[in-house]
């Protein structure tokens, strides 16, 4: 067995980090579009209209059961064919990042909608009624009263799903996207499989750090929010 070369880890980190922006862009894009989708889905459920509510429910249920890698492959192989046969658009030459973005938007939208809905429903209806009763418009009541409270409720869950999204994003290399994982695999094959363990360790370190950053910053936000709450109670 070849000895573990510890010093290879910092070396390979240098080769990997230039590709961190790709990983982060995929992450940020999925969060943005996924949140939009999530908002639409949550709204469909909260409003209690029959058809759209059932559709949203079904979509969320399916996504909850879908392994990210399976959806990634379905989008990667299926989307070009679907678009070609329906609207005649050829996207076969398109950037791989788009497929990744579509996949994780679809997944994250479902997760996000559940968080938004449960946070919204956890806020006492009386809050909204009180806001409207003093003359706020329904939009103002939502934006100024409900949203800030719901956000505070949603924060711990939000941090969790962000972490999961980032970890799931590591699967993008399987369709050939060159993010940090993709680069890592390129490095390993360039070395004919040598130093695989060291390379994976370096990748693990990067992901671990990113997770801790998300965790700590949300912990900090939560703390500062709850501090405000206590001072009101006093």
């Amino acid at each position: 067995m070849r000895p573990f070369r510890f010093l290879f880890i910092p070396e390979v980190l240098f080769d990997l980090l230039p590709f961190l922006p790709v990983t982060l862009m995929m992450f940020a894009g999925s969060v943005f579009f996924g949140s939009l989708l999530g908002f639409v889905l949550a709204r469909a459920k909260v409003r209690g209209r029959k058809v759209s509510g059932i559709l949203a429910d079904a979509y969320i249920a399916v996504m909850r059961c879908t392994p990210p890698i399976v959806l990634l492959f379905i989008v990667y192989y299926g989307l070009p064919e679907l678009l070609l046969s329906t609207i005649g658009l050829d996207i076969n030459a398109i950037e791989k990042g788009i497929f990744v973005l579509v996949t994780f938007t679809l997944l994250f939208g479902a997760v996000m909608s559940e968080i938004m809905r449960s946070a919204y429903e956890s806020i006492d209806k009386g809050q909204w009624e009180a806001a409207v009763s003093i003359g706020l418009s329904p939009f103002q009541a939502f934006y100024r009263i409900m949203l800030p409270q719901a956000t505070a409720v949603a924060l711990p869950n939000f941090s969790n799903v962000l972490i999961n999204l980032m970890k799931d994003g590591s699967l993008a290399f399987t369709i050939g996207l060159i993010d940090i994982m993709g680069k890592g695999n390129l490095i390993i094959s360039k070395n004919f499989g040598a130093y695989a363990l060291e390379t994976y360790m370096a990748l693990a370190l990067i992901y671990w750090t990113l997770t801790l950053i998300i965790e700590k910053s949300f912990g900090y936000i939560e703390k500062s929010l709850s501090r405000g709450k206590r001072s009101i109670a006093e």
Partner: peptide
């Protein structure tokens, strides 16, 4: 923390 911080695939 390590398990929570790293992807299953890794």
């Amino acid at each position: 923390s390590f398990i929570r911080g790293t992807p299953v695939v890794l």
